[in-house]
Design a protein around this nucleic acid. Structure first.
Lengths: 273, 273
DNA sequence: GGTTGACTCTCCGGCTACCGGAGGGTGGAA
DNA sequence: TTCCACCCTCCGGTAGCCGGAGAGTCAACC
């Protein structure tokens, strides 16, 4: 047996504010059992308490309302599980990320610049197996993992063991989404392969810094190199490159990783007096 | 030595979007080193990269901009540490909370109502030592811990070992902040004590449900009791009470905890046919 | 039957931390 | 000069609500 109650009472039963209940009604997420046509007063059924509490819990987990709606509206248990699992996974990732950031933050607040060795190099044009994609910043980790495994497989099947790398468009950094091209250098006469394209990377001068260790401080090296370039060089158009000299695919120990960041420049600057 | 760069370049150095940089300029969080008075073009100094990266990291941790500003503007290391520590603590709490919610969510999605025994009781008016406060929902845990320890100390010093409890105003639940009164019943002629006030709790009828175990599912018991009351009783004005029959202060094992939720009603309803 | 007071309604604006786009001015190279 | 990439400001929108204004409603009390 159930009974109907006013918004205020329902608010007390569910610990959702009246404003929130109005909002959920408006967007059709949790409509009252009935609405008085003359006064406009809402009446909720006590049977709706469970749904309301479910919604409240999901919102506590910061689940976006569209997803909440999906979950609440599906009766299919499997689909529910799936949506929920996906959300929890995202939260786990966020958490891991948080830990990383905290680590690097500590280093930043106890200052002491890591020395930055900038090297100038001319890199000739070369051909490579490439995978081109529009990638969102957040998803770059999994994307790289997938893509470099794929490139690695294609490469080893053909006896190629070059240092792979990637180019990142400016928008990738500034708009949090943009073109990324993962590449594995090959001989100029290399034959095409399934699933990857043949790309030609232009040659040019680069200011290059090596980032050693895990990626927590990566942006600092970027910033330092970029500052250096701004101070001593003329920048050239074209995307920034990274070369994965020692990568997660090579060794497990993050401390051993080495990434070269290559910033395109017009020419090698004259040494200052 | 430093150099100045345009927004676009600075954006590339810091991985903050141009829009974001504009915003930070507008709110005065990170003003460019100079602004061309005729064209309005911003110029940033490469020395600002570090600050920008610090801000970016803090924002990744969802730190609100006012706090970020505070942290960035203070040069005092101790104060920085303090702000940061406070923020991290909040995040840890949030995390713990998340775990709880996830646990209870699982239970909710695999349905099976926990049986709810509702009991009707008349509770006479009584006097108590009380601590009254405006409390925010989020902070209720620490508040209770503090307050009941205090009440406990005052009580034991006077040989009082009654079951303590608290009243929660409606606003506490519906607006996430409201008056809470923690109380420890005493004899009518009890003398005042330092740090606590003497309060008189009115008598009346209550519908009472026992919530057993940890507090993860607390809101469900609330909802179920409230629904029951809406279906079978006439509600009475006055705040809801909780009685901590077996509390965290008594035993460590959450499974042993017992909380009585007392919902004020007008009278004991006649049993239905 | 009128009045009170608690409750409810809708509508509008505001909050955070930006994003997207329109419409228009700038700067350096060809 | 003309191009094009870059930059400017201003306006509006986003999510998930909150706060308040102004007005209607409900039940109780006198």
């Amino acid at each position: 047996m159930t009974a109907t109650v006013t918004v205020g009472e329902f608010s007390r039963l569910t610990h959702l504010s009246v404003k929130t209940l109005h909002h959920y009604h408006e967007i059709g997420l949790l409509a009252p059992a009935s609405v008085d046509s003359s006064s406009g007063y809402r009446r909720y059924d006590t049977a709706q308490v469970d749904t309301a509490l479910l919604i409240r819990r999901l919102r506590e987990l910061r689940m976006p309302l569209p997803e909440v709606r999906q979950l609440v509206e599906t009766s299919d248990g499997t689909e529910r599980e799936e949506t929920l699992r996906a959300h929890l996974e995202r939260m786990e990732q966020e958490l891991a990320h948080t830990r990383e950031v905290v680590t690097s933050l500590r280093e930043m607040l106890t200052p002491g610049q890591p020395a930055l060795d900038v090297e100038y190099r001319f890199i000739p044009a070369f051909r490579a197996y490439g995978v081109r994609d529009q990638v969102e910043r957040e998803l770059i980790g999994p994307w790289c993992e997938r893509t470099f495994r794929q490139l690695g497989e294609v490469g080893t099947a053909r006896g190629i063991f070059a240092t792979s790398g990637a180019t990142y468009s400016d928008e990738f950094f500034t708009d949090d989404t943009g073109e990324v091209v993962a590449f594995l250098p090959v001989a100029p006469d290399q034959e095409p392969a399934d699933g990857v394209e043949l790309v030609d990377l232009p040659g040019g001068f680069f200011a290059i810094a090596v980032h050693a260790g895990p990626l927590t401080d990566f942006d600092r090296t970027y910033g330092a190199l970029g500052s250096h370039v701004a101070e001593h060089c003329e920048v050239a158009p074209g995307p920034i490159r990274e070369l994965y000299v020692v990568s997660p695919g090579d060794v497990d120990d993050p401390a051993a990783w080495r990434t070269e960041i290559c910033w395109p420049i017009q020419r090698i600057p004259a040494p200052k007096g």
